[in-house]
Design a protein around this nucleic acid. Sequence first.
DNA 1: ATGCCTCACAGCGTGAGA
Length: 286
Amino acid sequence: MRIATWNVNSAKQRAPRMLDWLAERRPDVVCLQETKLTEEAFDEQFGDALGELGYEYAVVGQSAWNGVAILSRVGLKDVRRGFPGMPGFPDAEARAVSAVCGGIRVYSLYVPNGRTPDSDHYAYKLEWLAALRESVAADGGEVAVCGDMNIAPTDADVFDPAAYVGQTHVTPPERAALAALTDLGLVDAVRARWPEDQVFSYWDYRAGMFHKNLGMRIDLILVGAPVADRVQAAWVDRAARKGKGPSDHAPVIVDLDTAPDGDIGPMVPPPSAKPHKPGSARLPQA
DNA sequence: ATGCCTCACAGCGTGAGA
């Protein structure tokens, strides 16, 4: 089972790249952020194409800003818009949706940016993360918290810590709020797989930052212990950041071994099937 | 070349993004 998260920075602007990418990578569960479309506009533009690709989806949208979605080919049950206790600014924004896909509670999150550390938006970000923690704490271990966290977990997740002094995304309170979430027992799948490597998921559009590999890792897939035990691969799909008309974020992809239950097929292979070699777990085909 | 910012809404500029 392949789970991906991608801040697309406008689904409307990214439509052709999004659909091509889905057809190429064939993720089973896709968390999208910054769709920047109302739910009606999303349905109008993507309903048929996603159906043809085999996806059900749940979308929470608004005009112009924010917007999140989950696409799934492995079931989409118990959809929740937002999460219990989610703060607004002052009204609820389209920043969270979750559903049970393939037996896992999957969140697609677009954490508030924070703007500047002295702003109301920064306080809102911290409150939002504290409420998120309480929601995730009630979910148990079969969980994948995915999305644009707008926090670089450590200094290793930015190209130059000195470049971000005094800015959001790296301040101790933000990192503490993220750590309080992961301290529930979640594993940062990409960092666990690449403990020593410089890995980024976002590069500013300006000044050739991508081409110089000056970025940040702020898009995360945080998985509960039983899910972490099933991780076969975890990586950033940098190819999706190249070329003409990319998002400023690249997708993050995690592959899991076959689910022990749920609706994506039997755990035990049929007697005729040869055993898999380690690391060669097959993904469900369309 | 992976190549020097993009998006939405408004309305030909402005605010936001991180």
